[in-house]
Design a protein around this nucleic acid. Structure first.
Lengths: 182, 182
DNA sequence: TTTGTAAGTAAGTATTACTTACCTAAATAG
DNA sequence: CTATTTAGGTAAGTAATACTTACTTACAAA
């Protein structure tokens, strides 16, 4: 996993060969298949590890905020920060696994659902306690938040562009909470 | 291209073989490489065709709206509609091409940039004519819009879930224009 | 009538994900 | 203290598949 992770820093999944992973880890190719079902399984497990850590961070930080708006803001911040600081993690999650159907049966996808569930819970709570407008569609708001987070990272992941996290977070939250209509 | 397109309806890019594409088109494998640099080039050209049509539709419809808000709304609507009605198109664009660096040198990517440019132009116009708040960050607003559109389609693309376009469009525009804070 | 070019084929080749059969060492159980 | 299971590891395959090469055919234009 370490060897594969290191290779993912430099190139995309498809152009990393199993021979390369093995050589880099100073083992033989066959050994990979003692621990992983196939090459894809390897990427899922790496993702799983990083997503676990990420989730813990999210939950801890959100627990320290009182309003739902603040909780959402800290989740947006933490997500952008994690994606930006760990390019391999975000590369895997946003570019490499979505096109393979079996990802959606993996443990890693279970964590993604948990993450999405936390956000939905906060939104619903915010509507219930009148913090958010009652006509807000919780699922759509979640789509907007997740979509904004993911799209905001793409430039960084793909082109290596620097991302000004504070600026983007305040931009996103400002739009979502207050809207842009004058 | 037709043969490949038909196969993309049923399976993902990686599990479609060149042999299959050729057989399905009643030609030999070698012929593919007379017209396309490699397998990836085939997908880029299919995407390019569909994106061209999509762009025309976007531009036509937006031209009929007067306010910038209405223009953005019709773009969101048309994007969701196109993605939802053409699963292969959206599968290619959102799941299959982003992980290959050479996509970003393709003609198809040029069209994506044009699309993004149109949206940015409308946002900037809206800020200039005071339709949108002056502190709106145009690039961030665009990220939110594109992210929301793309994320909204993922469930449909990946799991084949039905998407209620009108509901999602009004949900997204309501959030973006008016915000969710009570 | 010649020639250049576009459309097409058949039979490769190299790469690469994955498998199989085997080996070794160290726990663990009787 | 021995016997046996099991975890860690290897070497040498194999099948599949993206892509290449050298050749053929048809036909439009010079």
């Amino acid at each position: 996993m370490k060897s594969f992770y290191a290779l993912m820093k430099e190139k995309d999944f498809h152009s990393i060969t199993t021979a390369e992973i093995a050589r880099n880890a100073a083992v033989t190719e066959g050994l990979i298949y003692k621990y992983f079902k196939d090459k894809k399984d390897l990427i899922y497990q790496v993702l799983n590890d990083h997503f676990s850590e990420f989730l813990v961070k999210i939950e801890n930080r959100a627990a320290h905020e009182k309003t739902c708006a603040e909780q959402l803001e800290v989740i947006i911040y933490t997500s952008l920060e994690s994606y930006a600081h760990n390019r391999v993690f975000s590369k895997i999650l946003l570019l490499e696994v979505r096109n393979s159907p079996d990802f959606f049966n993996s443990d890693a996808y279970g964590l993604v659902r948990k993450y999405a569930g936390i956000i939905l819970g906060i939104i619903e709570e915010g509507i219930k306690n009148k913090e958010f407008k009652s006509d807000t569609d919780p699922h759509v708001l979640r789509k907007v938040i997740l979509g904004a987070i993911e799209h905001a990272c793409l430039g960084e992941i793909i082109f290596g562009r620097e991302l000004d996290i504070d600026q983007v977070v305040s931009g996103i939250t400002n739009i979502i909470f207050n809207g842009v209509s004058a």
